[in-house]
Each structure stands twice: as structure tokens, then as C-alpha cells.
């Protein structure tokens, strides 16, 4: 009985259902085919004309219009859970990946996961592993998977063998990283990381970094810095990563990899000792 309900719920909003139930007649089929063919021909010729004049580079086909945001956040976590079975091998059963170079997905914002999958699908972000996987998913699948990972808790289950954050001997509020995360560096025009990546503020599509793997953060900063990853809309990350030195990138990766980003950074992280008042 329980199973039955779940399955029915699962198909509830399938748009094909209405088509299946309608009775088809030969005349109607021919007429519809003609119309669809004409529409496709007209549509493609129009699109070709639009694309012919523009040789510009588009970083990502995603644009955060209200419709896109609604579509990206309309996923069903239950369906996403079933789809995400095939993600487990690399990204972990709880969304915490066993390998440092693979991102943790637990608790990531729906829009962030959705956008990256969409970009992998369009080839805007390259990965030999993720591109074919994303291409095998439908538009609806992307939203469902994103909804599932958004619902996973940020703290790993203590019953699980994998522990996160990884015990790190160097895990401390290094002055370089704390300053960049909390205040950025105004003299060089580097905004604070936490203004867009949380927990202070978020921009649509900007992932939370609080529980990300250090190796992954470092690899992405390097990729943005040399332009090998270029799917950020209006170039914010390419600009910032290019402004960061190697040691700053390393410090930021260590900071986030140790889970320090769970709390907002502030002046108390930078001052070595609290001021003692008489």
C-alpha cells in the first residue's frame, strides 16, 4: 500500500499521462505531425539566423531568470534519491566524497548543483566523467538530483565510517585565509568569500563552501585562475582567482577543507589574542 502510493505520487505530474489517455485518430496524427514538422523547421531556421551573427563566447547557457530559478528549484528529492544512486560511487552515500578531488555535494544549494549539471550537459564546463553523466539525465532529473543533495545534512552521520571535516593538523584560522574569507582585500579589489559563498550571503548559483574538500577548492581556484574553467556568469570567479596568489589559494582551500567555513568569519579570527581590558 505504501509502495503503491509512492509510485502513484511519482508519476503524478508526468506530462505524458494526458497524452496517453487521449484517443488518437489517423487524421489527427497526420495533422499534428505536419504542424510539428513545420514548427521545427521554422524554429531551427530562426535559431540559425540568430546564432549566425553572434560569434561571441557564452560562459553558460544558464541565466537566472525567475523561470529558470523556478525550474531549477522544482525538483522532487525522493525521485532525486533514486537517481543519485549512481552518484554514490564517487560523491559518497551521504554526499561526502571519499576522494578529495571530487566535490562534496551534501547540503549544496539546489541552484548551484543544477547549474553545474546543466553546464556539464552543454559542455560549458568540461569533465570527462561528468559530461556523459549529465547528458544522460533529463531536464527534470537535474532538478530532482539537485533537490536531493540540497536536503542532505551538512554534518556527516557519526554512524558512517567517513568523517567530515577530515581531521587536519593544520586546521587553524590562518590569518591569510581568515582575512580573505571575512573581509577580502579592498586594496586589490578582492571581495570577501563569505559574501557570496556563505554563511553571510549567497548569490544565485554560488555554492556553499563550508563543507567542501580542500583539494577540490584548490583545483577549482587554479582552473578559474588560468581560465581552464570558465563557466562563471559575468566572470566573477575567473577575476578573483586570477587576483589570488598561490599561497592564498592554498590557505583558502585549507580553511574550507577543515570545515571552518561553517561559522561566519570575523575580526576575532584574525586578532591573535583578545584585547585585555584593565
Amino acid at each position: 500500500m505504501w509502495r503503491d502510493n509512492q509510485v502513484r505520487d511519482f508519476h503524478k505530474d508526468d506530462p505524458l499521462d494526458s497524452l496517453r489517455s487521449c484517443s488518437w485518430q489517423p487524421g489527427m496524427a497526420i495533422a499534428t505531425t505536419t504542424v510539428v514538422l513545420l514548427a521545427v523547421i521554422a524554429g531551427t531556421s530562426l535559431l540559425n539566423r540568430v546564432n549566425a551573427g553572434s560569434s561571441h563566447r557564452v560562459p553558460s547557457n544558464v541565466a537566472w531568470t525567475p523561470e529558470t530559478i523556478a525550474q531549477a528549484s522544482s525538483g522532487k528529492a525522493f525521485r532525486g534519491l533514486l537517481l543519485a544512486k549512481r552518484c554514490e560511487h564517487c560523491h559518497g552515500a551521504e554526499g561526502f566524497s571519499p576522494v578529495g578531488s571530487t566535490p562534496n555535494l551534501a547540503g549544496l544549494d539546489k541552484l548551484a548543483v543544477w547549474k553545474q549539471l546543466e553546464d556539464f550537459r552543454d559542455g560549458k564546463r568540461s569533465s570527462p566523467v561528468m559530461e556523459p553523466i549529465a547528458q544522460s539525465l533529463s531536464q527534470r532529473d537535474l532538478a530532482d538530483v539537485a533537490a536531493y543533495y540540497a536536503e542532505l545534512p551538512v554534518y556527516a552521520d557519526p554512524q558512517d565510517n567517513r568523517v567530515f571535516p577530515e581531521p587536519n593538523a593544520q586546521a587553524s584560522h590562518s590569518p591569510i585565509a581568515s582575512r580573505l574569507v571575512a573581509f577580502g582585500e579592498g586594496s586589490r579589489g578582492i571581495p570577501p568569500c563569505q559574501a557570496c559563498h556563505g554563511p553571510v550571503g549567497y548569490k544565485p548559483g554560488a555554492p556553499s563552501l563550508a563543507t567542501q574538500n580542500a583539494d577540490y577548492v584548490l583545483a577549482q581556484l587554479d582552473a578559474f585562475g588560468d581560465g581552464s574553467r570558465a563557466n562563471d556568469i559575468n566572470e566573477p570567479m575567473r577575476t578573483i582567482a586570477a587576483l589570488l596568489s598561490d599561497s592564498e589559494r592554498q590557505a583558502l582551500a585549507t580553511y574550507y577543507g577543515a570545515g571552518l567555513g561553517l561559522q561566519p568569519g570575523g575580526a576575532s579570527d584574525i586578532a591573535p589574542k583578545p584585547l585585555k581590558l584593565p
Binding site: S54, H56, R57, V58, P59, S60, N61, A63, W64, T65, T68, I233, N234, E235
Partner: peptide, 16 residues
């Protein structure tokens, strides 16, 4: 211009 779609088309695309 549409602020969400500057990167898709128009004069504010990346290489412009």
C-alpha cells in the same frame, strides 16, 4: 537590458 541575461546576447557578452 535583461540583467539576468547579459552574458547570453547583446553588447555585454564576455568578449565585448
Amino acid at each position: 537590458v535583461d540583467p539576468a541575461e547579459l552574458h547570453l546576447s547583446g553588447e555585454f557578452v564576455e568578449n565585448n
